[in-house]
Write a protein that binds this DNA or RNA. Structure first.
Lengths: 205, 205, 205, 205
DNA sequence: CATGAATGAGAATTCATTCAT
DNA sequence: CATGAATGAATTCTCATTCAT
């Protein structure tokens, strides 16, 4: 039963001051989420950390979940921005692109483990909302096409299924690997065999 | 900084009445975790649902994390009990055993998705505790040996690395797949290709 | 091991409304301490008596000890204000000044016996804190100089020791006398012999 | 308004086992009071420390105050036992006896400061009870006669007043001095001048 | 009667959110 | 509109005491 949480920002910040306020809140929230996890994420704490009055908080966000969602969206968009070049890079060398993609994905996850861990916890609730689904759908599309292209070549099976399979396998493994604290060179050591396996499985050339 | 949380039960129930109380608490906790997730898991709610006075709760558990850990342990042991036969089944057909194992793992995860989702969230905090590590270590050993045997055959690489790779890949994917709500036949459709890939990659026969 | 209790007020009241709230809390606290002693001093009770929401209590004080300390400070400052004129009164008649001082001290103690009894009990815990020591030190200085001057005249012994002796003897006796419920004229009847003894002992002129 | 607290032991321990139980409780209580102060003194904790079931606690004491009072009585009796020889020592040398008495008093207080501090805090409530007054009266009598004898010699004033004065002055100062943590030789350095002053004041020979 | 079990009542503290100025 | 102030509703945990076997 998807609880109806209003995730839409209450009003768009028009004046420069207002933009600054929202940014300060987002920054503080990010900081707290990374440091203290979802449990430490309270409206008052965020507002204080941001140097913003708690009432102002509720001027821009109808509830704390909305801010959370704001962060999720931000993070997701930053991630997409980093991945896009690879996802849209022209050329036929799917295997190379896939390897780059997987690596980059691992690196992104690793770079913000703490924040992402918290956001993952938050997503449990957010997942039930329309907005969240919409957000994911938007970005996922690009990825799907990318995987589809790589996988699709000379492939006869169920394309949709395969795409989903690859995406789930890659992302879950990346999340889990980074979550365990793996980083640096070790990260690539984990990522590459996965790519190898995918390449082999789907005859990616 | 790992906060020291006391996870050991405060007192063991001796009379039948008390055993019932503890069981009621565990059951209520399981129910609430599955229904409302970690966020809804409060000592009072659990006690009320269990029809037990809150003070009784604290007779048996020093804090709510201890009850959480109790559930985690129960779940983990049930899981191990289901997997053990496969993990220890004698014979040389590693590929078959691996497939059975992966399938069973997916099924277990799927059977209690909601509970397990919550427990995963809980693990974020629990992970820092001695007790949790000890618990995992105990069961993980069996799995490791199983994977090591399957993978080890005619393999020259770093065994430890491979074992970890397989375990992380399998479990993270299983968790994620079930988390998305996948179940039934579809579940096996997801599990098997993973086995195929592992068999291929590690020359499992 | 001195437990670190944060005794500093969390937030200073800026608007008149808030000042009233803090005052109401202090008043209620004083009332309860005098009526029910330290044992009856609970945050909830104080807030209720003050007609203030318990959450408001915690807006201004980080814990109930902080409010306690607030009262202690208030009381101590009122006391000092009453004693200061005597302590700093110019002139050579030390014997007279000492007598006045001792009497006034007894009167002060007697005027608020119930409150002071409770505060003394509270001091057991407060004593271990920095803030408390600092508070006492500030006022004690004046008293010490006063006693030193009276006692010091033509005296060859250990001045520090004597000052401490006089202070402890006087204050403990005053506390005890009032604590027993002695008041009115009887109070002076107790105080004066003590002065006599001190005057005799230390050749105070 | 003296709250009616039932301080009488519920039933006298007849069997040896029962005596042991009560003793264990008293010992545990003493230990806890000394270590943790009145705040740490809870019925359950005492019972556990004593290795006695909480229900047994309430078999012998109607409430925790009764145990407290039991300790107070014990302590008071031990104290009286130590002072009695001096108080009743025959002979005319009142000054010497008084000095011995004061010193011994200081030493007793110092030997159990922590416990006595806690008991003093407890006495605030106990003081209002009949039993407590009766207890004090009994022992005080001996002391009064002792002081009366010392002071009375060739004295024309109000004897009752003087006795009370001496007792209050001595005991309050002793309590305060030890409470400040003074001990060892320093203790006597504090006690003796007080005796000197009393001797001088009351022409004790 | 001794032990295990249970509990009503309360105490400290926090949080999301709204109101007043 | 921004800030200070306020609060209802929880939440964690404790305690004195009684009940059941």
């Amino acid at each position: 039963m998807p609880r109806k949480i209003d995730l839409a920002p209450k009003k768009l910040p028009r004046q420069r001051r207002a933009v600054a306020t929202v940014e300060a809140l987002a920054e503080a929230a990010t900081y707290i989420l990374a440091r203290e996890g979802l449990g430490g994420f309270t409206a008052n704490k965020v507002a204080e950390k941001a140097g913003v009055n708690i009432a102002s908080f509720y001027q821009y966000f109808p509830n704390k979940e909305a801010l959370l969602f704001h962060i999720v969206r931000q993070t997701w968009e930053r991630q997409l921005a980093r991945l896009s070049p690879i996802l849209t890079r022209p050329g036929e060398d799917h295997a190379v692109k896939l390897r780059d993609f997987v690596r980059e994905f691992f690196l992104i996850e690793a770079a913000e483990v703490d924040l992402r861990r918290a956001l993952r916890a938050a997503s449990v609730d957010l997942k039930e909302t329309e907005e969240f689904r919409a957000l994911l759908a938007a970005g996922a599309d690009l990825t799907k096409r990318f995987i589809a292209e790589a996988v699709g070549n000379g492939h006869s099976g169920n394309l949709d299924f395969d795409v989903r399979f690859v995406v789930l396998l890659t992302t879950s493994f990346a999340e889990r690997t980074t979550d365990e604290g793996t980083g640096g060179a070790e990260l690539i050591r984990q990522a590459d065999p996965l790519t190898d396996m995918l390449v082999a499985r789907f005859n990616i050339a």
